[in-house]
Structure formats: C-alpha cells, structure tokens
Simulated scan of single mutants.
Amino acid sequence: MVNFRNAAAAYKSLNGLICVYKPPCVPIKQVQHTIKTNLCRDLNELPDRPREQRVEIVGATNEPMTVKLVPNYADDPLVCGPRYIHEDIRCSWATHLGLFSSGVLLLGINEGTKLTYLINTSRLTRAYKIQGQFGKATDTYFWNGKTVERAAYGHVTREKIDAVVAHMQAAHQKAMYELSGLHMESQATYEMASEGLIRPANSKLPVIYGIKCVHFESPNFTLEVQAVNEYDKYLWTLVHDLGMQLRTSAHCTGVQCIRQGKFDLDVALLRKHWQLEHIVDNMDRCRRILEEHQNLMKPESARLSM
C-alpha cells in the first residue's frame, strides 16, 4: 500500500486508469460521484501544505512600528472550505455499463481520461455472463418488464441449448464476414483473421464473437458471450431469441461483465476498496497491464475493419 507524505503528492499521483466492479442497479454517474467523494475525503485527511501567512504592521504611527507574520485566516479550511473538491478531479468511463448490469468498468482519473477515449475508440471486446430463465417472456426482455407470455420449458435440455447457441454463433460470424465483403474460404479472409479480430466499421453495430452455455439448471441458465459494440437491450434480446428458437419463452435475469480486453474481475476494485490507497495501487496495476499489452489500444485506423 502506498504511503503519501502529503495531500499534494497524493493528488499528483492520481493520473491514470482504474478498474472497478460496478454493482447492479447503480448508475455509472453514481459510481463516479462515490469515487470522487472518497478521493476528496482521503486527500483532505492527509497532511496539507503550510497555511499561508500575512504581514501585519502594528504600533503607533508616530513611533517605531513592529512588523510580524501572523496566520492568514482567509487560507484556513474552516473559512475557505476543503482543499480538494469534486471539481478538482476529472473522471470518465471507457465504455458504458447499463443500470442493471454489473462487472468490470474502466474509469480514467484526471489525465487518465485520455486513456478512456483511446479504449473507447479501440473497441475492446467484452465478455459477459448473462443469466436467463425459461418459461416467461416480458415486454422489455428483462425480469422487471411486464409479462407478455408464458410457455412450457420441460422439453429444453442442455444439448438443445448448446446446439442453438452454436448455430447463433455461426450465424453471427458468417454475417460478420459477409458484411466485410470477403469469402469465408478466401486467403484474404485468413490473413485478416490471423492478424486479429475483425472490428465492424460501424461502432453501433453489435458483433458476437463467441457464445456458449456455461450453466443450466432448468429453468435457469447462464450464457457466456464475447462481443463488441454491445449494449444492455441487445444482450437481453439474445436470451429472448434463444427461448424462441427452443420453442419456449425466456427472459434475462442478470448481466455481468467479466472481462474487458485484458482487464478481468481479478483486477476490479470492489466498492469497499474505492479509497485513495487502493485506487492508486489499482492505477499502477492497470498501467502495467497496458504496458504488457501495448497493442491493446491500437488506433482504430490501424485495426482491420469491416
């Protein structure tokens, strides 16, 4: 754990990327607000710079006067307020996580906001665990929506789920190559695939790179999905489509982001660790990850695109 001599040294170290675990039903803006509040609190508790002094001349004007230094009360935190406030700390996210989603969230602090912009434009793949439940469909495809359909699910087996998700993955991969104008068995396609994942040219077009069922205990199941340009409603729709293809109905009960690029759950700070010392340590850990994988944030123009 890092020990700081004073608040000024601690503040200067707050420039970089951090990885936190966003709880479900907590907006990203509230995560930002909590982190800023905790950082300001911890900074203000550290030893501060010496209080400014002012020159005071005392004595009668017709006699020799005395010049002395006295504390400047205008510089007292009790008068001017805390040294560090929210406006002193900049914080931005790399990619958005919806209100009901939880998991890995990358945030940039102060100069680290530049890194979040690079990550956003690099469009790193993210991995999710998506929980679903058979037997009911809602108007929002999520558990909090209005029930619009109920169906039997006793015929659904693990083998049938695996077959459907394999078909869904193949369909997404085929569409990905078709939109790129390449033939699946051509040399150009092989060379593009060997150099890395193909990113869609449109940043709003979701692409699924992998999908599989990792847990099934009827009526509940869990899918693991690797995607780019995804968003909450799109992931909920995958669960709904799976239910339709299995001749039943299904809705999503939870979404957890377990990895973004090389940042996984092991790196993410829990809410109880959103404190200055842990944040600075995590910032250093994220910096080492970025240095080990220098091509992680390669400019989009240098990437292969569709």
Rank of each mutant, 00 (worst) to 15 (best):
H155D: 01
P71C: 05
P82A: 08
L124W: 00
Y84R: 00
Q169A: 14
T157R: 03
V104P: 05
T138D: 04
K146M: 13
S122E: 07
E63F: 14
T61V: 12
A137E: 05
D42R: 06
S122Q: 06
M65T: 10
S102F: 02
L105S: 09
E56C: 03
F142W: 08
H155P: 05
P50W: 00
E52R: 07
T140N: 05
G108K: 00
Y117C: 06
I89Y: 06
D42K: 08
S92C: 11
L43V: 07
L115H: 00
R150L: 05
R150T: 10
L107Y: 00
T138E: 00
N120P: 02
N44L: 03
A170C: 02
I161M: 05
H96N: 14
A74E: 15
Y117F: 07
K146I: 07
Y73Q: 15
A94I: 09
A94H: 04
R49F: 13
D76A: 03
T147C: 10
I85R: 15
W93M: 13
L46R: 02
E159R: 04
R51W: 01
L115N: 05
P82K: 03
N144Y: 15
Q133L: 03
A137G: 05
R49Y: 13
S101H: 01
N144P: 05
R51G: 08
G81N: 07
V148S: 00
A170I: 01
E56G: 04
A60R: 08
T61D: 11
P47T: 04
P71Q: 08
T66N: 14
L78W: 11
P47K: 09
A151K: 10
P47V: 00
T61G: 07
C80W: 07
G145L: 09
E111C: 13
A127K: 11
T147S: 12
A137N: 04
D75L: 06
N44Y: 12
S122M: 02
A166M: 12
H96E: 14
A137S: 11
E149W: 09
I130L: 11
I109P: 10
K160R: 14
K114F: 04
A94C: 07
E149F: 10
P47F: 07
L105I: 10
D76I: 06
L97C: 10
E87D: 14
F134H: 06
K68G: 04
G98H: 12
P77W: 01
T66H: 14
D139M: 10
R126G: 08
K160T: 03
I161S: 01
N144F: 13
G132L: 02
V148E: 01
K114N: 11
V58G: 01
L69M: 15
W143H: 15
G59K: 12
V67Y: 10
F142A: 04
E52G: 06
T125R: 14
P71G: 06
K68A: 09
V70T: 14
A151R: 11
Y84S: 01
N72P: 09
R123P: 06
I161D: 02
E63P: 08
N110F: 02
N120L: 12
G98A: 14
D42V: 11
L43N: 02
V58Y: 11
T95W: 03
R90H: 12
V164C: 02
